[in-house]
Amino acid sequence: MFHVRRTGAALLAVGVLSSCTAGADGNPPEPPPALDAATTEYTAAYDDVVGALTRDIPEVEWTAKDRFPHVAEQPDGRCVLFLAESLGEGDLYEPSGGLTELAAVLDPVLDEHGFDPVSEVVYPESGGDVYVTATDPAGWELTVGAYPPIVGLSGPVETDRCDESALG
């Protein structure tokens, strides 16, 4: 269980850190969406991604974690909404060609929701999970990891208060 939590936290940290950078075109990211709008819009994107994975890679059964969504203020003052995270039971790595075939499964769905195509497969030098990511112009990031299978979505939001009370 510790490995799952550590991996999930590491994947979400990747999303938070990358949301600080410029977009793929070198321009600054779009302003963050309002919390309520982001929750609705990105939940639809997340559901569509998990649906595509379920449909095209049935070897993995996805289960949503029960502690999401939550918000956290980052050291730079940004408020990040950790919208959703699902853990998979089964092998994602082999049936997805070492995650290389995830682009064919996810890119059409991501395009519908304004995300860039998935990244090349990332093999961390210091160990850890093998993963792919996709971002949108507002700095939101979807991460799909292999060991254990995990899907997470997080990004910056605009809200008056950046704590759990903001979620209503």
Rank of each mutant, 00 (worst) to 15 (best):
L12A: 09
V105M: 08
Y131A: 03
D47P: 01
V49W: 11
A138D: 11
P69Y: 08
A10D: 15
P148A: 14
P29L: 09
D56Y: 11
T63Y: 15
L35K: 06
G152A: 11
P108E: 00
A72D: 12
L102P: 02
T40F: 14
A146N: 15
A13S: 04
K65F: 15
G51Y: 09
D160S: 02
A10H: 13
S18Q: 07
D48K: 09
E59G: 15
A138G: 06
D116I: 11
H3W: 04
G51M: 07
A104D: 11
G145C: 12
T135E: 13
D136R: 00
L99T: 11
R55F: 09
P32M: 00
A84T: 01
P108Q: 04
D91L: 03
S154C: 09
R67T: 12
L12V: 01
W62T: 10
A134M: 08
E41Y: 03
G51N: 05
P137S: 01
G97I: 06
V14F: 02
G98M: 13
G8L: 12
E125S: 03
S18H: 14
D91N: 01
E73M: 06
V109T: 09
G127M: 03
E30T: 12
A166Q: 04
Y147F: 05
A38Y: 00
C162G: 00
D25H: 12
P31G: 06
Y147C: 09
L17Y: 06
A38P: 00
N27F: 04
V71E: 10
R55L: 09
G145F: 03
D48Q: 08
G98D: 10
G23R: 03
P137G: 01
D91V: 08
T100W: 11
C79K: 07
G88V: 11
G23P: 00
A72R: 14
E94T: 14
E89V: 12
Y46S: 07
Y147M: 07
E141V: 02
A22F: 08
A104N: 07
T40E: 04
A52T: 10
Y131L: 12
P33L: 08
N27R: 07
V121G: 08
W62E: 03
A134Y: 02
V4R: 09
N27P: 01
D111Q: 14
R55A: 06
P148V: 11
P58Q: 01
A166E: 00
H70W: 06
V130H: 07
G127I: 02
E59L: 03
P156K: 07
V50I: 03
G128Q: 10
E120D: 14
V49F: 15
C79D: 06
T63D: 01
E101D: 12
A13H: 05
V80C: 00
H70I: 15
E73K: 14
T135G: 15
Y42L: 04
D91Q: 07
D160I: 03
L153G: 13
P117T: 07
V109L: 12
A103N: 04
L81K: 09
T40V: 06
P69Q: 00
G51D: 09
V71C: 08
K65Y: 07
T100H: 15
G168L: 07
V130C: 08
V132Q: 04
R161N: 14
E73D: 10
V80I: 11
I150A: 09
E120A: 14
D25I: 12
R161V: 13
E112D: 13
N27C: 04
G139I: 07
E125D: 12
A45P: 05
E41S: 10
